[in-house]
Every structure is written in C-alpha cells, then in structure tokens.
Design a protein around this nucleic acid. Structure first.
Lengths: 192, 192
DNA sequence: TAAAAGCATTGAACCAGATTAAGAAATGAG
DNA sequence: CTCATTTCTTAATCTGGTTCAATGCTTTTA
C-alpha cells in the first residue's frame, strides 16, 4: 500500500523506518470513482494528494465559463490547489478524477506536524514545488512563443501516455486552443 | 547594508543574531551598471540574487530570436535561473539589469551549507518558490484565457511602479504581444 | 438495447493580434 | 549640446486561431 509513495519519497530524501511509519500515519487513503470532484472552487482545499492509481485533472474556470486545464495527473503525481492549501483560503481550482482513482491525502495540520518532527520533508516539498515551478515556466514560454501545432507535438512527446487516457477536448483546454482547432491540427499532422 | 534583506527574511522565519550573521557571511555584495548581464543562456547560473536596489529582467530567447520576459525584478525581489542553479546545469535564461543595481548573491555551496546549519531557511526558500509558482500559474491562466488589453490592465494594476521603470516593448514581451499591438492597446484605453 | 449524452470532425465566416514599413519622439553618451 | 541609438506610434495587410453550425461516432445510462 505504501510501497509506491515510499519509493517516490526515497528518491529525494532518506528516512529511517520510524520516520517513514510516522509519515504513513499521517496519510489518509481514499478510493473514488471517475468523474468525482476532489475539490471545487470556493471550497477550502485541505489536502495535498498523492495519486497511487488512476488519472485526474486540475482546472480553472474563468468568468465566461471557459475551462483551462492546468495539470493531468497520473500515477506518482501530487495534486492540490496549493494557494488554497498553504494559505487556508478558498480554492480557485477544480480537481476531478478522469478515471477511478486511489489517493493518499495529507492535510494541513499533519503536513505542518510532519515538517516539525521530520524537517527533511521540508526539503522534499521544496524540491517538488521547484520542479512544478520549472514546468509551469516552460509552459508559459511555450504558450507565448510557440504556435499551437508545435505545442501539441511537444505535449505528446513529453507525456506520451496522456493522450490515451484523457479526452481530446481537455488536452485542447490544456494547450490553450479550441477543441475544433486541435482536431484540425491532428488531421494536418497525420497527413504527412 | 543588510537591514533590508533581514526585514525580508524576518517576515517568514525568525532568527537569532548568530544565525543572521552566519547568513550575512555567505552573501556577496555586487554593484552593477544598467544593461549589465548577470547571466547569459549557456553559462552556469551559480547564484540566487536578492535585489537591494535597482531593476532587472529575466528573459528567454527562443529559436527565432524572439524574446519572452519572465520577470521584472525591483527592490526586494530574488532573481536566478532556478533550473540551472539547482541542478547545476547550463542556463536557458538571460538576466540583465535595466537600471544601475545593487545585489546580494548567494552561491550553490553556500546555500546548501546554510540549509544544513540553519534548516529554517529551507522553509523560507520553500515559501518563496511556492509564491513564485502561484504567480506563474496565474500568468499562464491569464495568457490562455484573457485577451491582451485585459492582461495589460491587470499588469498595471498589479505592478503600478513597473511601467515607469521598464520600457514598453519589454512589457509587451512579458505579456506575450507585439510592441506595436501594446501601443495600440494603450491609445485605445486612453481614449475612454 | 434504445435513447441520450458526450466527443470528434469538417467547413465557412470572422477576428484578435502579427508583420511590415516608416516616421516621430525621447534618451543617453561623448 | 548634439548625434546616435533606443523607444514609441500609426497604418496597411496578412494569418493563426475562434466561433458557429451541422454531422456522425462513441460511451453511458436507464
């Protein structure tokens, strides 16, 4: 049950058996069907979730009801509305499963307790967010300076398994193009 | 000399006099003219710099020579190519001052030593990057879902002092529009 | 197993913003 | 103070991508 997350954690920091067991004791296991909402904008996000199995998406809905997908999570990813979680304020994001999924959640108090008892985790989470930051930056640059077909190809190359698990119109909402245009891009690309 | 950065640090973590002095001992003071490069893509970025005074920009140049501005830093901001710094690999970003500037730099080894000796700093840097991440995410969302005039107005509202210090074509490169179009946006807006 | 709902494709009309080109205005270095 | 460089504006034309609408295809769900 915890083997997967332990492997993940071990890549960054090394822990004693006791530390690991303490960590486990703070996690809450959750199993949900596809199309379940883990979070809706307006609620308070009191979790960071490690995805053991399944697939989920984190997205934003703007004033006009237009969706922007920020993340497709699969096995081994963390999902949360970090601004809401860390500042304990209402969420601006939605989190919804795309497949039946299994998760391990940690809440705010537990995470703070963990940092206090095992400061090494502060490092783990710093490195995690650092990586997320770099990814986000690359995406912003791509969105500003690359045309949509290029962005789509880069996406498929970087996440080859995602297009098989996530509907195409959601990928369009991730790339920042209309579903119709993504469809056109795909037919164009397949004709060469 | 260190008063400003101490105030900054103190907002997040509280430190003893000794800890603070140790921190100071790791910092390198640097004073540079406007239009100085602190970093060029290809070099290794061995600093995170706190801007004591002045103004600088962090930007990316794509394959076609097109610039994307990622950050305008003024007093109290940190600048670096974080991917290069933390993984000790070649930079992809440029950092250039826009005004004569004064900086406090910390290098990789010193930062690691600091974390080891005063783990509280791990928390500070985690919170710093977390905020940067949220900012980056908001920007990505805005770039995907809001039209350029809106993005410009939001920018001016969020950073009211920047437009007076940074040339307009750089702001265009930050917002992801051509300088000509930003000029058009501005005349349109002033006519109402 | 049928009906409904969601998803992908295609084409035509349209628009936000890019590109190109030129000149005007501001700024800074000598 | 003055020339060179950088910065800003305006206008014409072009294009990547949107919107709208119609059609067929898959999944769900009852």
């Amino acid at each position: 049950m915890y083997q997967q997350i332990d492997t993940y954690v071990n890549k960054c920091i090394s822990l004693s058996k006791e530390e690991l067991e303490y960590f486990h004791s703070l996690l809450q296991y959750k199993k949900v069907k596809r199309k379940s909402f883990l979070l809706r904008a307006g609620e308070k996000c009191d979790f960071e979730a490690y995805l053991v199995k399944g697939c989920a998406r984190v997205y934003y809905i703007d004033e006009n009801g237009f969706e922007v997908d920020l993340l497709f999570a699969v096995e081994d990813w963390w999902i949360s509305d970090l601004a809401s979680f860390s500042q304990q304020k209402p969420a601006t994001l939605f989190i919804e499963t795309i497949e039946d999924s299994e998760l391990l959640l940690i809440d705010y108090k537990s995470k703070e307790a963990l940092f206090k008892k095992v400061p090494k985790f502060e490092r783990l989470f710093r490195l995690m967010i650092q990586k997320a930051y770099e990814t986000m930056m690359d995406r912003l640059i791509a969105n500003i300076s690359k045309p949509a077909p290029q962005r789509y190809q880069d996406f498929v190359k970087k996440y080859p398994t995602i297009p098989q698990r996530v509907p195409q119109h959601l990928i369009a909402a991730y790339l920042g193009v209309s579903p119709e245009f993504l469809s056109k891009i795909r037919t164009r690309l397949s004709k060469t």
